[in-house]
Simulated assay, not measured.
Amino acid sequence: MNENDIASKVIGAAIDVHKALGPGLLEKAYQECLYYKLMQAGLQVEKEKPMPLTFEDVKLECGYRIDILVENKVVIELKSVESLNEVHLAQTLTYMKLGSYKLGLLINFNVALLKQGIKRVVNNL
């Protein structure tokens, strides 16, 4: 399964979660529900995946964690904020670069219509 196929499945599951819960909950609630939906769909899913930072050939645990990693290919960064900004995008890109992932989805559940809260992020390796 390629990154685009995975992203389509993630977006479908995220829409289902948003339809059921609506906006206004904490990020953690959406994370748990999306994780459950993706597991139900038979995808390999990791949540709160630690992302070490390599500095001068030394791996350092700095507390970075990917919200959800799907099929070890697609980074999912979840938010429940008033609006997405450049810092959220930079955070997603950082995780992607640290793990050499090509595709990420930045999803803000605190919107009326979820498609307004989804940003596709591509890392040109």
Rank of each mutant, 00 (worst) to 15 (best):
K47D: 08
L78C: 06
A112L: 11
G99T: 15
L26Q: 11
M96R: 02
I118G: 08
K37W: 05
C62W: 10
S83G: 01
K73C: 08
E86V: 09
N110I: 09
G99E: 14
L93N: 03
M39N: 14
C62L: 15
G12S: 13
K102P: 07
L105Q: 02
V75C: 09
I11L: 01
I118W: 00
M51R: 03
K47H: 12
V122Q: 08
L89M: 04
Y30R: 05
L43V: 02
V10R: 02
L98M: 11
Y35M: 08
V74D: 03
R120C: 03
L103V: 11
V74K: 03
G12P: 06
E56Y: 12
V121N: 01
N124W: 11
V121R: 08
E86R: 07
V75M: 04
S80F: 03
E48S: 11
P23N: 04
K9Q: 11
S80G: 03
L69K: 06
L125F: 12
H18A: 08
Q91T: 02
E32S: 14
K59F: 12
L106F: 07
R120A: 00
A90V: 07
A29S: 13
R65L: 07
S8L: 13
L26R: 08
D16C: 09
G22K: 02
V45Q: 06
N110D: 13
A7K: 01
K49N: 09
N4Y: 14
L26I: 12
Q91G: 04
M39F: 11
Q116W: 07
R65I: 08
A13K: 13
L34D: 04
N72C: 03
L93Q: 08
F109C: 07
L43Q: 00
E82Y: 12
L84V: 06
L26W: 09
E27D: 05
D16P: 00
H88Q: 03
A7Q: 08
A20K: 13
V81M: 05
I118P: 08
Q40A: 14
S8D: 11
A112P: 06
K119P: 05
V17T: 10
E77W: 03
K79N: 03
L43W: 02
V17Q: 00
T94D: 01
L125A: 09
N2P: 09
N72E: 15
A14P: 04
K37Y: 13
L105F: 06
E48D: 13
N123W: 09
E46F: 15
H88I: 00
L21K: 02
K102T: 15
N72T: 10
E48N: 14
T94K: 05
L34R: 07
V111N: 01
L78R: 06
V74P: 05
Q91S: 08
C62H: 07
T54E: 13
V70L: 01
I76C: 05
Q40I: 14
I15Q: 00
L98G: 12
G104D: 04
S8W: 11
Y36M: 12
N108Y: 02
M51D: 02
Y35I: 07
L34W: 06
M96I: 10
G99P: 08
I76H: 00
K102E: 15
G22V: 05
L38T: 08
K37H: 06
S100I: 02
I68F: 05
